[in-house]
Design a protein around this nucleic acid. Structure first.
Lengths: 99, 99
DNA sequence: CGTGTAAGGAATTCTGACACG
DNA sequence: CGTGTAAGGAATTCTGACACG
């Protein structure tokens, strides 16, 4: 089952602010810097998931450690990159076996 | 760990309406009939949990089956009552053992 | 009883900008 | 660069009531 409440984007920015302790300004800024990607309602209000909340707490910790937004983004991209490579490796392996 | 995202009251009524397919009117009415108990923000807006969303879907099904709100409430209270009795039973058992 | 709706107001969120640094 | 804030507007939600049945 690939379903989880953790990635359902249903939380407004006010609640996210309460949950994370971050100002709404910061939360919107981290989105501007491509660190977080909320959904939007029809009307345009941002909706976050619990995963997003966790990620924001993580971001907040890194910011406290003096890291800059672009560094955090770079780090995130590296993770995604590694995942992609592993996935590609598995696909390649599967492909070779079937040859 | 007694923590779960499922019972964090963080979802606005608009999203709950989308998630359940129920009108906001119905959702507020079921609260009036004591079937559901959202939290409130400082400003007074209702906040629901994923558990509440599941419960609402359950309520919706029973309403479709022609059940009335008071019957659904009675059924819920029975469940709570059973849980209470079991808990009390265990406590009594534990108490006797220690005597 | 259960639910839709129009009404008026209040709370929430949005964007773009200025400020400081 | 990262974040606070005042500004004006738009989207969201609230309550109490009338309606139908």
């Amino acid at each position: 089952m690939a379903f989880s409440y953790k990635d359902k984007k249903v939380i407004g920015i006010g609640i996210v602010s309460e949950l994370t302790g971050l100002s709404e300004r910061k939360i919107r800024y981290y989105e501007e810097r491509k660190l977080i990607f909320p959904d939007r309602s029809k009307g345009g209000t941002r909706k976050y998931s619990f995963d997003d909340v966790e990620r924001l707490v993580d971001i907040a910790n890194k910011m406290e450690d003096g890291m800059q937004t672009f560094e955090i983004r770079r780090e995130e991209m590296k993770k995604t990159d590694v995942r992609d490579k592993m996935l590609r490796g598995q696909l390649n392996a599967a492909f070779k076996i079937r040859k």
